[in-house]
Design a protein around this nucleic acid. Sequence first.
RNA 1: GCGCGGUUAGCUCAGCGGUAGAGCGCCUCUCUUACACAGAGGAUGCCACAGGUUCAAAUCCUGUACCGCGCACCA
Length: 897
Amino acid sequence: MLSKVYAPGPVEAKWAEAWQKDRLFISEPSPDRKPFVVVIPPPNITGALHIGHALNNTLQDVLVRYARMRGREACWVPGTDHGGIATQNVLEKMLKAEGKTRHDLGREEFLKRTWAWYGECGGTILGQLRKLGCALDLGQENVRFTMDKPRAAGVFEAFRSLWEKSLIYRSERMINWCTRCGTALSDIEVEYEDEKSKLWHIRYPYEDGAGSVTVATSRPETLLGDTAVAVNPEDGRYKGLAGKKLKLPLTGRLIPLVADEGVEKDFGTGAVKVTPAHDPLDFEIGQRHKLEVLRVISYEGRMVNCPAEYEGLSVQAARKAVVEALDAAGLLEKEEHYKHSVSKCSRCLSHIEPLVSEQWFVKMKGLAAPAIEAAEKEKVRFYPSSWKKPFTAWLGNIQDWCISRQIWWGHRIPVWYCRSCSADGLKFDDKGALSRVSFADGARPIVSQDKPSSCGACGGHDLLQDPDVLDTWFSSALWPFSVFGWPEKTKELDYYYPTSVLVTCYDILYLWVARMVMSGLEHMGRPPFEQVYVHGMVRDKHGRKMSKSIGNVIDPLVMMEKYGTDAMRFSLMAQTMGGRDVPFSEEGIIGGRNFVNKLYNAARFIQLYLPEKPGPLKTEPPRELADRWILERYAEALRKSEASMAEYDLPKAQDALYAFVWDEFCDWYLELAKPRLQGPGKEKVLALMLELFSGALKALHPFMPYITEELYASLKPYLERPGDYLLKQRRPEISGTGTGATAEMEELMGMITQLRVARAQFEIPPGKTIKALAASADAAALERLRAGAAYVKLLAKVEELEIGRDLPKPPRAISALSGAFTLYVPMEGAVDLEKEKARLAKELEKARKDGEQALSRLNDPAFTAHAPKAEVEKIKARSEEMSGKISRLTAILEELK
RNA sequence: GCGCGGUUAGCUCAGCGGUAGAGCGCCUCUCUUACACAGAGGAUGCCACAGGUUCAAAUCCUGUACCGCGCACCA
């Protein structure tokens, strides 16, 4: 006999290995079958997978397994992402522990280390996906990486093609600079956070001594880089003053007062200091008025190009020093408390400095337009659909994408400069390496993946590659087609593209999904997927983000170890409600574990009765009510489950099967089958039981692959059509609905429940059998009860059930109503009359209330005139039922007096 | 400021026009030969608030409040 409690560990290991060994997850282009294709959102190689990955991949696995079991050529493409800045940060942290920086190693050595890390971490991630049960072909040749050779070829082709269409350009513009990461970022990689600060009002005196203009600022230190003060041209306070010169405090530099419509009259003092090098709005104003762009904050976040006392100070220190100096000079008019949002690096949370810098950009407006159209025309459809609007709105607002990063780990920008042609713009670090590029107007660098042999213009050979790398999302954006070998015209690309559905958390909808849609349309001419399944973020059970500092992080690996993978997957699914965040806790997994154990024990129960000699049991048409009933419930569960899958409502699809297995199959059918398994019809009952249970295992397999495979394998020798691995089988057919067995069975179930309630209330020990009488004036109901009496006897522990039209209430009996029946349970000792009366009175009261309500509705002519006929009939029936109940209860109560 | 979600049992959430549901937790009884990771029974809800539409509203509409999340602004 097997253990009472299921032990997932060894079972999971066994099947994970078997599935991989038998290459169960491979897919090949099969033109005769419709493909179902999913590309994995490639996890960054930054460490172990977290619970969000577990959710994301479980959802995909369910969809992929489900599709496969419905005969689709399902292909789920595995891979990992090099993760640019994120991964470089991990490596730099490791170096820091050794007391080193990446510059100590040098670029080449640093990259070597990072590749080694990829080997290690990539393997760990794949192992975790495998453990999670993912139906991914993890054969070495099949796993893609955003920086492997074929993907690098794709990146180059995308760059080249955009460059040739002039959609990629290099220019000096305002960008977000993370002083900690030491690189430019795109707008979307910046987060905003409210911060309490101050608004300083500072006087800027006129050159001619005629008073001063007061500006309000939250960043006084940037004053050192001011090249103007701006006011609104419509502002009466400054009428006619534009063009006058002001003396910039602390430096004495003369700057103009300009009139610009970008200035709000009503904000602050109506006058704004203009620092074109360090503020996006000021940059625009500067462009309009051809102001000098004076950089006073360096890439390291320190003050430069300013009076000696501030030179080299951090931004924070400079702020303090500037405010103090202004105060001392009597130029500080006032300080106000002020709340404003500051920009932070989404990766390291350091402050972002907006600054002007020369970078590579992709022109986005033209790329976004077709993507917006695709979403609007539902060529790309969102689940839940509420994501469509934010998606198109974001694309509609899109700015050019800064794609160059001043880091080392990533796809090097495939651009080369000729030292003799463009020497002016090239800057070198102290080791002689090209550190910054700034090329003159009209200079055309060479775009090439490998080092070109010579310069096309001058024939020179002294060629240097751009030092920067591409934003990691540049390669991710190509993922749905680069994984199939693009730009090569492979048969995989031809067969699998476009993919079917993309499953992702909403946090990378713009960062990644939008860019994939744009590049799919641009490079392939078609959107990369038909559907986008958007799920939420996994949070703790109170909705808080999981974080190390709160200590509420749930490690999926630990949970899988502790409760089993199926249990974790099940619970994760059960909590995932349409696109919103997923509350999750360890207690939640226990529910899943319990269900896995329930399945295991149901199988154990069936096995108890299986003949010793294995061999298929022949199924036969169902013979009695319970059989017809359970078949109907089974069909209904499968139907519901499939309908929910079609709407991508995975938790509901899972729940329909869960409820069937637990509440119907186990709680009722198995219980009813117990005596039948002792008698002569045993084999036939077993055969049906096996058919339904193995069918339920098939239907549940996408959700909980391990336990279902394990149990199915153990029952296989007894099945008529055993089949292979579950994944290679078809889902069970739906049949046997509409026999009316459900209503008939429910009548009996109701009676059983009534008897159980009576037993519980009058404390009849569960083991003790009772006598019962069931009286009814309804001849058909009596007939039905006679047919089903055995069920009542069995499940309500009734040893003698008397059924008849006019059965008198025995003395010392308790009474109950069930549908058309009045039930009496004779008691051995005295009946607690008060308790009985109270109980019946309560019932009576409820029946009266319901009856009155029904009657008043029926008496309302508006209701009978407007409501659908079926509804009126329903209320009529209820009213009749209640009046019957009332008279029966009244009679019983009368007798008790 | 604009937008999107939410507000239902102690907790986490379903339900989205016809008499309020699940899981977990709680209470009572039971270790009955599948399962105590279980079974049987039970308690618990002005379905945020205010209006409206409708024969009928938790469900549709409008507004309010509160909570969350985006986006924009932020001198």
